[in-house]
Amino acid sequence: MSAKSKNSDLPLVATANDLRTGAVVYRGVDGAWQRDISRAEIAERKDAAADLQERAETDLAVRVADLALIPIIRDGAFVRPAALREIIRATGPTIELPASQARP
């Protein structure tokens, strides 16, 4: 499955869901997929985004699903997704979960 380009606004990072757990992950500069968006590889230009997408797609076989490149906003060292949907993916539901013994 090829990646979805949800928005062409630069800069972009690659996000997906971990294949085994479904957890939201971002592709880091070392090629590892991890939970922290601030450690994601950031594509500043279109050619860099295409390259990032190509490399990320190789991970669709066994590591991740539902790959997408998403626009981010940078404020100094702080990185966050641009769209509300992606902010919620990055930080979790905006509501309090009903149980206290949340499983990690």
Binding site: N17, G22, A23, V24, A65, D66, I88, P93
Partner: peptide
């Protein structure tokens, strides 16, 4: 019955 949603399956 398995969907992939925003945060998990």
């Amino acid at each position: 019955g398995v969907y992939l949603q925003l945060h998990a399956y």
